[in-house]
Computed example of a mutant assay.
Amino acid sequence: MLTATALLVTGCSSEPPRRDDSPIGWKACNELFGSKNVDVLQEQMGGGQLRIENQSYPVRDLTAGLIALARGWEPGSGAHLSAAFNPCQIAISKNGERLTSDVRWFQFSMSEIQSGDVSEEWRNVGGDVLASEDSGRGIEFIFPCKISGTHKGQEEGLPLKVLLWGVGMPNFNTDLRGNMASAMARKLSSELGCVNKPAIPREITLA
């Protein structure tokens, strides 16, 4: 039985592996999105070998970086704005299909977003999550996450923002996108140890 870390999907013995040999990258993608969702994504991406295109690192390194930034934050500080993490990028190079994820602390506070003082249109999609659609194939979502040991205003003033989008993927349907977004939000909330325990719906979608 194949482990979740390996995830080398093969057909006949003469066929090459469907996924490239990037165990750290595939493990991170499976942890963030859920292995079943990654399997469905593979089916939707069609023929060709799937590759991990970002610099692979474990989820614990991602969350450690985010926690360090949050603990160094204070009102008026912009030091966190240049730091973005790309924990999972899956692509089929020959036809340009690509799934990209981006995680960072957001530059606006929850009150600024909810009052409409930002250029993007955000709306509640359940629980504590606000979302905005990006060019039809992408979804951005934010939620408040209080990190232990941070400034008292960090939860409201520094929400977490995640972008998930597909390029050249006409079959990247809203159900899969919503399921992957929800899985990622719940995993990040757990691994970051958000003390406010944000409510995250089982599916994040704007459809």
Rank of each mutant, 00 (worst) to 15 (best):
S182T: 10
G127A: 04
A70I: 01
V167Q: 10
L62P: 05
P75C: 07
N86Q: 14
S111N: 15
Q55L: 06
S115T: 12
S190W: 12
L176T: 09
P23K: 04
N196K: 05
E133I: 05
M45Y: 02
S111E: 15
K27P: 00
V38I: 15
C145M: 11
I90M: 01
S14V: 10
G126D: 10
M110P: 01
R18F: 00
G76M: 06
A91D: 06
E97H: 11
P58T: 08
F172A: 10
V195A: 14
G166W: 06
L158T: 03
V59K: 09
K187P: 01
H151D: 15
M110S: 03
Q114T: 14
G46Y: 03
L158D: 03
A6G: 11
V118M: 00
E121Y: 10
L41A: 09
R51V: 07
K94H: 13
N95C: 06
L2K: 12
L163I: 05
L32H: 05
E53S: 14
E112M: 10
Q55R: 07
H151G: 03
I52N: 01
N54H: 12
F143S: 08
L62G: 06
L32S: 05
I92M: 12
K146I: 01
L41M: 11
T3A: 06
A84I: 11
S82C: 12
K161P: 00
V59G: 04
L8C: 05
F106E: 06
Q49A: 09
R202E: 14
F33L: 14
N37Y: 04
S115Y: 08
L32K: 07
L8Y: 04
S22D: 15
W73R: 02
T3H: 04
G34R: 01
S148P: 00
G149T: 11
E140L: 08
M184D: 02
A70G: 13
G47R: 14
I24D: 05
R18E: 04
G127I: 02
R98I: 03
R98K: 15
S22E: 14
L206N: 09
Q42G: 12
K94Q: 15
G116L: 11
D117A: 15
M1Q: 13
I147H: 02
G168T: 11
T174R: 13
Q107W: 15
G126S: 13
C29H: 00
W26I: 00
S35F: 08
A91W: 00
L32V: 08
E140M: 08
T150C: 11
S148W: 08
V125C: 03
D21W: 04
S148V: 05
I90F: 00
N124S: 15
R186S: 11
T10E: 13
T63E: 14
G11S: 14
